[in-house]
Structures are given as C-alpha cells and as structure tokens.
Amino acid sequence: MDERPISPALKILACAMFIFLLAPLIVVVPISFSGDSYMMFPPSSWSTKWYPAIFADGKMVSAFWTSLLLAFVVTVLSLLIGLPAAYALVRLKPRGAEFLSSLFTAPLLLPTIVLGLAILIVFSGYGLLATFQGLVAAHLVVTLPYAIRVLSTALATLPIPVEEAAATLGASPLTVFRRVTLPMMRSGIVGTTALCFLVSFDEVVLSLFMTGPRISTLPVAMYHRVEQQADPLVAALSVLLVVLTLVVVLVVDRTSGLAKTFVK
C-alpha cells in the first residue's frame, strides 16, 4: 500500500492519546497486587492477597455466578430467538420487513437509563423485579438487536446459489438450513455469541434497575463496592474480567476476525 508517511508529530500525539485511552485499564494491574487495605497508587507494599479475597467474598462470588448464568441463558435465548427472526426477515422477506428490522433493533437507540426506567416500571407490575427471569428478559431487550443485526448481515451476505444447489441435490428446506446455511454462518454466529455474552455480562445500567438485595450481578456488585469503598479487591476482580474479555476476543478473532466484526 502506498500510504502517506506518518509524521513524527502525529506519532507522538497518537501515542499520548493511546496512553490516555489505556491508562485506566493498565493502572488496575499494579493495584490488584497492592498490599494496602485501601486503594492508593502507587501501593506502599505488594501482595497477592486480593485475588483469594475475591473468592472469600460471598456476595461477589454469588454475583459472579449469577452473571455467568445470566449471560449464558441470555446468549442462548438470543441465538434461539434471533436466528429464526433474522432468517424470516432476510430470506422470507415478509411485507414490511424493513420496518420490522428497524423496530427490532430500535431498543439500541434508546439510552439504557431510559430503557432501564421504562422496564423497571412495567416489570414491577409483573413482579419481575429482582428476579432472574426479570434480568433475563431485560437483557434480551438489548442483546436481541445486536443478534438480529449481526445475524441478518451474515445471512444477507451468504451466496444463495449454494443453498439452491443443496436443494437440487435433494435436501429439504430444513436440511438446507441445518447442513448448509448454518455452517456457512459460523462466523456470524460466533460473533453474535461473543457479543451477546459480553453485552449481558458487562451490562450494568439495566441491571441496576432490575436487581435488589436478593439478586445481584457482578457489574452491579462491583458498582456498589466502588461507590462505597474503592479497595484493591475491585482491581483484582477487574484484572480477572479483562482477562476473561481477552479470552473471548481471542476466540472470536480466531474464528471470524475481530476487526471485521467491528469495522466494516
């Protein structure tokens, strides 16, 4: 590629901005090994005590399991609901398909603070507040638009003749979908899975409206913890979460190319 040479001024500026962008993620690593009992940077002594402390904290552990189960259930449901819907919208093209697509992705346009309040008010009437089912339903509202969007794009870019070829070879519509369409959508499905999982696992605003003393998710528990006492335990937990995110990102990158998923 014949790119323009990058001027030193731009290099320095970009480098400085990168440091700014990554500073909060970098800084939690040393803090997580702090020996102090409250947060201070740089720490006055070092230890690894905060990592085991996470697992000793019953609230955090149960919130973690809730988040993990929640993200899992939400991801599975997003695929189960999103895949048929994307297929219907892209392939069967009912009248008003475009309108329906916009409607189904519209929740993304609403700020989560507004959506959270709206859902809080309605769900309180159904007794869904501070329940696992309520959390699942609320998260689905925001993960499904992502699922629809990624899966629709994946479907729309599939070559239709390949499916037709399968039909001429004797595959029934269901078999075509199972043996040809689905495998060819693999990268779209992996992308959707990762995206829904991370969105649900990291979701905090909606969850704040939906949780209570009885049930909490990890980001909510962390939020309350930071609000009260920003101690190094949160840093240790953050490091674990960043590692978890990295693992997910690497898996996606292996199968579908992360850059492609985010930058068209």
């Binding site: 070559p159 390949v162 037709e164 070829a165 399968a166 001429t168 004797g170 495998p183």
Partner: peptide, 14 residues
C-alpha cells in the same frame, strides 16, 4: 431429482 450445475459453481465452502 435434477442435477444443476450453477454458473458460479455454488460449492459448499465448508
């Protein structure tokens, strides 16, 4: 029960 050869081949890439 017809065999169709597509202009674009339409092989199963996977």
């Amino acid at each position: 029960d017809m065999g169709l050869v597509f202009q674009s081949y339409a092989l199963f890439p996977h």
